[in-house]
Amino acid sequence: MAVLRVRGFALPEGEPVDLYADGDRWTSDPVPGAELVAEGWILPGLVDAHTHPGANAPGDPLDLDILKGDLRAHLDSGVTLIRSPGLADDPPDWFGQSDDSPRAFHAGPWIAQHGQFMPGWGRRPDPADMPAVAAEQAARTGWAKVVIDWKPGDEVMPVDVLREAVRRVHAVGGRLAVHSQHAAGGAVAVEAGVDSIEHGMGLDPALLPLMAERGIALTPTLSAITEHLAQILADPERARTNWHVPGASVHRRLAAAAVEAGVTVLAGTDSRPHGGVAREIRALVAAGISPHEALAAASWTARSYLGLQGLVDGAPADAVVFAADPRADLSQLDQPQAVIVRGKRAHRRPDPH
């Protein structure tokens, strides 16, 4: 197999690099005969930290053909790493391992309370059993995902139950993500010391410094929430009564405040079609976050949070290369020059347009 080579300016520092894919690891030691596949501005791969591939609609079973297509769409967009905090079922062994897939972390099926979450999806253990279920999942895949609040008026998961889940998950070396879209749920999540809050709509901004101190990440799924808000506001009657409006209306400010407070913010799309991480990056920038920080949330910061190094010797051989600096021109995100994952070039499908 030919050794691949990339050359250019590596983000985040923008320093010149010349890297060779020695199997699945980068090296700066020259390899004779290496194939120069791209020159330009190099990122250590894009990351979608909140995506649920494999099912067309909420409640649908996991479909392997849909899963393959979704993963390929991520890869075509320059995403070389995904985190799936919840799937319709346990994925096959090739998930995140095949040549047509980004690397992948996942939390298996969601864990929810009785009477909450999407019918047909997830597990609903009794509260006393939930910490053990979460720990068993994290021991298998590194992550567990718990839905701690759902609709207005639904019971928020008790903090003692969630705190015990965190303790048990950490004891097996795993991490715990939680779905929260109400202020009460966000408060419980921070108090319990979870590892990441997904969505976080309605989160009290006063909790952001404590999140930063405790290393609790926020994945605001900003593009999905703001696009849904726009649909609601298009119908004045619906806008007057829909519970999403107050939290969604200030969600941009929350995301920007989180970055300002030093919270690790992760880019996640939570939407179909897959491969739309560029929309999330643009949504973060529209919220007032600098292009550098928005790209960090979708690349080097997210990779570091998930335990992968960037463009250094010995790091996983992943990269996406752009002709120009995407921080200065976000349109570059729509046209990667090359995508490399596991030391191999991902051949992009032709643009249907």
Rank of each mutant, 00 (worst) to 15 (best):
V6W: 01
R7E: 13
G8L: 06
G8T: 05
A10E: 04
P12W: 06
P16V: 02
P16H: 07
L19K: 13
D22M: 08
D22R: 14
D24P: 09
T27Y: 03
S28R: 12
P30C: 04
A38Q: 11
E39G: 09
H50P: 07
T51M: 01
A55Y: 09
G59A: 07
D63W: 12
D65H: 13
D70Y: 04
S77T: 09
G78L: 06
L87C: 08
D90E: 14
D90I: 02
P91D: 08
P91I: 02
D100S: 06
P102C: 00
H106C: 00
I111P: 03
F117K: 13
R123G: 10
P125G: 05
P125Y: 07
A134D: 08
Q137V: 15
Q137S: 12
T141M: 03
I148L: 03
A171T: 09
V172R: 05
S180D: 11
S180T: 15
G186V: 13
A187W: 12
G193Y: 02
E198K: 01
G200S: 04
P209L: 02
R214L: 02
R214H: 03
A217C: 00
T221H: 03
A224F: 07
H244L: 11
L254R: 05
A261I: 08
V263R: 06
L266N: 14
G268L: 08
T269R: 01
D270P: 15
D270S: 13
G276M: 13
A286D: 15
A286P: 12
G288D: 05
P291Y: 02
A297Y: 11
W300P: 04
A315V: 03
A323H: 15
P326D: 01
R327D: 07
D329K: 07
L330C: 02
A338C: 10
R345P: 03
D351S: 11
D351W: 12
P352S: 04
